[in-house]
């Protein structure tokens, strides 16, 4: 926590901010990338959103008051950026955001940056079939092992609500995997 505080102080300082920002990117780039990638599914899109996330962090660091952990604040920005990205794409293509995700999903099999086997592809199909909030909760809890308390800050939802969302998501995914015979 002390380390995080000093990093935030350095980020807000004119003299130290380059070194601090480099450190910030190095520390969080992979975690944020994989979080974003699981939402947008495609590498190029994830790269765009990740860069936008860091640009937003850089431009708004002065507004960060330390009410939450820096890490959860960045996760929140990354989540919002990913959702905004999908919504903008949907608006541009005049389709729904679900259709954008379905299109990204159907390209996965041919994606050179997807090396998943059939069960991994099937899991992605199952996750994409969930409502957006449940997708986020499942991905962050199952793959990233984020605590419910941290999730609560990131998604602005009560811990009880998140637990319920996660269990519903797991049930739906289990049913999906058991019933889906398309592979």
């Amino acid at each position: 926590m002390v380390e995080e505080q000093s990093l935030v102080t350095a980020l807000k300082s004119q003299d130290l901010r380059e070194k601090a920002f480099r450190e910030l990117i190095t520390t969080y780039k992979e975690r944020l990338y994989w979080h974003i990638r699981k939402i947008v599914l495609n590498h190029d899109d994830a790269d765009d959103v990740l860069q936008n996330t860091f640009i937003k962090v850089f431009r708004n660091i002065d507004k960060f008051q330390g009410e939450s952990k820096l890490y959860t604040w960045m996760y929140r920005i990354a989540t919002n950026e990913s959702i905004t990205f999908i919504n903008k794409k949907a608006k541009k293509l005049q389709v729904t955001s679900e259709e954008v995700q379905q299109a990204a999903l159907s390209n996965l099999k041919e994606d050179v940056y997807f090396e998943g086997n059939e069960i991994q592809l099937k899991l992605q199909r199952a996750i994409t079939s969930l409502p957006q909030k449940q997708q986020l909760v499942f991905n962050m809890k199952y793959f990233d092992d984020i605590t419910y308390e941290e999730l609560s800050t990131i998604l602005d939802t009560s811990v009880g609500g998140l637990k319920s969302s996660y269990h519903i998501a797991v049930k739906k995914i289990t049913t999906f995997l058991e019933n889906d015979e398309t592979f």
Binding site: F21, R22, K29, E115, G116, I119, Q120
Partner: peptide, 24 residues
């Protein structure tokens, strides 16, 4: 499954800092 199966281009993370710094 424990992992997603997603991958990134070679050296992607190594070159990311400079890309972001050039935009900030």
């Amino acid at each position: 499954p424990e992992n997603t199966g997603f991958n990134v281009p070679e050296d992607y993370f190594e070159t990311l800092e400079e890309k972001i710094l050039s935009k900030t």
